[in-house]
Design a protein around this nucleic acid. Sequence first.
DNA 1: GCGACAG
DNA 2: ATCTTGTCGC
Length: 232
Amino acid sequence: MGRSQEDRSSELRIEELKKIQLECARRVIGRDDFEKLQTVGGMDLTFESVKENPTRAWASLVVIDIRTLKPIYSLVVEDMVSFPYIPTFLAFREMPLLLKLYEKTEVKPDVYFIDGQGTAHPRGCGIASHFGVETGEVSVGVAKTRLFGHYKEPEERRGAYSYLKHGERVVGAVVRTKDKTAPIFVSVGHRISLKTAINLVLETSRYRIPEPTRLAHNLLQQVRRRSLFGAT
DNA sequence: GCGACAG
DNA sequence: ATCTTGTCGC
């Protein structure tokens, strides 16, 4: 069978999105560029259905105080998502909800932890960098699994880490946030150095997932279940 | 052509 | 990401 017009046009759109990512990568600032770091916000998303394509989705932001690791603010927004999940193009599916959260929040944290990669991406601009560059905010990519780059398993103790590399280029780090548990993948989002990002992730982790992200995720599970069933 | 592939 | 209870290990 020959390829349809839809196939050819989607390929063209994909090429345009790649250009956007390459341009975004040029704008990423990979060094510390901020005044203070006292609060950290974690953002996460959850979907009503993983199969359906337009589907309802919710996004949350939970801001914590780095000193106490306790939440000081949280917000949830809802909307319809239609762009599909395509590896390396996650930002085009989730960014709209993240931006909606960003414009509605009454409390802006000093740095944002975004679920996914930052510079540890084939074209140097994963969703965490995309969010940082687009908003001008400080951001860090925090992912549970690898997308891009090679690494050697870090030691088993909390605090140990190894670098995610593409050839000789360091694109991120594999960090052990808890003894004997799977490591997480940390990378520069925007306006922060990898070294500071790693330390910040470790400072805000009590369990495997950093508190901002873990709390944002937990909050969404509650919202989702409460919406699907009728629990009050 | 084959394998990899954030959420 | 989501479907899903109990169970093994620290």
